[in-house]
Amino acid sequence: MMDLKPAEWVRHAVCHPVEGFEDMRWKKSGSVRTAFLIVFLLFVAQVANGRLYGFQFGVTYDKTFNIIPYIVQSIILFAAWVVGNWSVCTLLDGEGTMKNICIYSAYALVPYIVQVFVNLILSHILVRDEAVFIQAISIIGTGWTAILLFSAIKSVHQYSFGKTVFAIILTIVAMFIMLFLLVLFMSLVQQVYIFISTIYTEISYRIRV
């Protein structure tokens, strides 16, 4: 029973929002490689969405291109989700390991990525009056991913419905805390850097004189 290849597992998980991840857990399957590939595709999708969207739906600012926001929107966001969820659910008796959270969450992103690419193609075919199709696809894709993400967290930790909701809220809080700490750390590093560079400048002037 259910001897599927990694790609088939992705299809199974995406097409069976309720049972798919449970099956995956039961068979102890899912590969990190596929998960990373999906996250990379998410990154590609975000970049494509930002740069290659149909011109009739809005103008891209193409004087400069900065890759950092796209990385933050995809890879960093996903990493924060995984780390945040892991750290919360370790305390909440979750059964999932970091690896499994990563794999299951990544699999859940597939409808969103597909939606982005489909809309990207549609944006070069439709005009503004027909934008409702794009909106519909976008809502379906995002909603599907949300349901899958919920189901993924539920099965990977073997939680009840209520506890999953609670865990997800806490995960989002944890992500914000991480963001806060990151900003704090950055500004601290900056302060230290400025301090050191000032001292260096001062000393270099003294030596010269």
């Binding site: 149909g54 011109f55 009739q56 739906f57 809005g58 103008v59 075919i125 005009v127 503004r128 009056d129």
Partner: peptide, 14 residues
């Protein structure tokens, strides 16, 4: 950089 005119032109082009 005018997507409004582009939209109309694209509709005709299509």
């Amino acid at each position: 950089d005018s997507s409004r005119i582009y939209n109309k032109a694209f509709e005709g082009y299509r």
